[in-house]
Design a protein around this nucleic acid. Structure first.
Lengths: 198, 198, 198, 198
DNA sequence: GATGAATGAGGATTCATTCAT
DNA sequence: AATGAATGAATCCTCATTCAT
């Protein structure tokens, strides 16, 4: 029997665990966390309610796990292809486009992120752990600032005018009030750039 | 005492009703809707739990009421001093500043808005009713577009680059990660303008 | 309407509270604490399950309350008619008889006491609070010792030979293996006395 | 190696079975039966949860087994060295001392015995089976009574004044409120004797 | 024989809502 | 109008037991 053919399954990475997380993601973005009973998640995931507790300590713990795993996946996707040698604007557009692509491919995760980032359900520890992952992105802005490519203004304002508009449009996209066509994307990116460029 | 000074109290605006709404606003922005029992709201408002049902049909109904009343107050505050004769940029800055001032003066209401605008707790009907109130603002953008003051791009993108950054900074302001000093406000407004101006 | 006719009912002393405590006492002495669901207690007490939580914080809290109220009632019953002037043996027999009468009249409470005094369900704090009530009884033994009426031996051994036999016989009485006839009672008391007298 | 020394292992006395029983005894005397999950017993015993069901039919069955095995071991230990020819008081003291020694050497088993003898978890059948084992001890008392060594009073009362005090002191000993020093033991035994002697 | 993942029934507790006062 | 005791449905979670490996 060839052991190499077997996919090595741990509790961290099993089919059931994945099914549970997917079901949870789907249901809580749809109905909200409190309005989604464990029994419903179990049904959707095709497991018994008790099984969920083999993989997670509590209903709330699932939230933290989803949040953290999402943050990691998002960061990895966002910095794909990024190099410090890239010219400032190219670098920023690459990051933005990566970010946007990930969110468009994972609309449920985006909805989840929007819903829970500022929610009392996500505890402080998880929030901070999550934010640490994000730090690579800060650097591009700092470098672009020192190269005088973009305005020398507080980084918070820079973020506000780059990420917030994209997130807003993503939200509208999800409720069919906006289409992320290539043309619209270019217009939006250009507006971001106009907002921050020197 | 002049009889005209007496405030005519109906169910729509009695002291108790106000106390209940305030308590609800405070508690659910703090702990979330599901984590705020009616009993706690009653305690905070200084009334009996049963009394709440004299003023509202259900716990969820309170949410809709708060949402709608908030939207109306916000709109009124935002268009204060606005006239169709104002030059485009001045008009937009006035609206923005009004909006910002209202939110800074009513941080709980801003938090509530952020938390519930995209939540499943707010039903579709309420959402649409709420959005209708916002329409006055559309006009300014449309006019500015036709006057070639700002880019001729989809209005959704305009919104995204004007309101979303301000909301983002408000959120950061509330968690003490950003200060809305006059200087920062000017920088942020300028960036909004740079993003959309022709 | 004559207010004096009304029995003043507080949460500490209401019909429902009493019914709940009685039902609990009956059911847990019969089936054990863990084998007695709250739903069953509610049914037996003729109230809704939720009502129980108006009077007690948790299932376990009921146990503590029953234990403490029992200890107090027992102590009061035991020291009834007791005075420091009574001769030693008379005093001890009075206490013993009082104790026995109370237990015979409250067999469920005796069963409860036996079952829970040394159980991990009763927390340390409750145990100690309960024991403090018992102190009056210590004094009689100390006095009798100093008067050379009874043996000058450790008080623990005195207890062992007075209370333990009576408790044992009470236990047998409850399962119909022994009858506390006046004659048997006299024999048992005499044996207690023989065990400890000088 | 001599083949006779090999211990023949059946389900009745394998290492795993013993480990399971020990773990159970330890855990349920500490936390109570209901508060001790099978999973914890399995962990403590170093076996899988499922393994326990190879040796016992149910969680409750383990209790019965422990109870019966304990009763048998206790009886054997108690009657060690006993002969019908021994003089009455010597016989009684021998039995008492044997009983006491066994309990002092097996404090967990004593705790278990105290906790479960009168518990609803031990079913009637087990109780009766268990009590039959104890009968040898009755005889000594009956003989002593007929020899007029001890009072001619109901055997239940005799038990009450001999075993109950010792059990009480054992209980106190286990919670460090009493020391079974040779001196204290002698005092206690003497009191037992004084209680029942003619 | 052993394992331990999976099950799902059962139980404590919470809380929106009602209603007698 | 106002109260708050009472309700009981709903929900999270535990854990004895089974069974495929």
């Amino acid at each position: 029997m060839n052991v190499h053919l077997y996919y090595y399954m741990t509790k961290e990475n099993s089919e059931k665990r994945t099914a549970i997380l997917c079901a949870t993601l789907k249901l809580i973005t749809e109905n909200g966390f409190a309005a989604t009973p464990i029994s419903l998640i179990a049904k959707e995931a095709g497991v018994a309610a008790g099984t969920i507790y083999l993989y997670f300590n509590s209903k709330e713990a699932m939230l933290q796990v989803i949040y953290l795993e999402f943050k990691e996946a998002l960061t990895n996707a966002t910095i794909a292809g990024f190099s410090e040698n890239l010219p400032g604007r190219v670098a920023i557009e690459l990051l933005l486009q990566n970010y946007l692509n990930f969110m468009l491919k994972n609309p449920l995760k985006f909805k989840f992120f929007e819903q829970f980032t500022n929610s009392p359900y996500i505890n402080k520890l998880t929030k901070e752990t999550g934010l640490k992952i994000f730090y690579p992105i800060v650097q591009v802005f700092e470098r672009a600032k020192s190269e005088r490519l973009i305005k020398d203004i507080p980084v918070q304002i820079l973020y506000a005018h780059v990420l917030a508009p994209i997130n807003h449009l993503l939200r509208q996209h999800l409720i069919d009030e906006f289409q992320f066509t290539p043309e619209n994307t270019q217009i939006a990116f250009q507006a971001c750039w106009d907002a921050i460029k020197s």
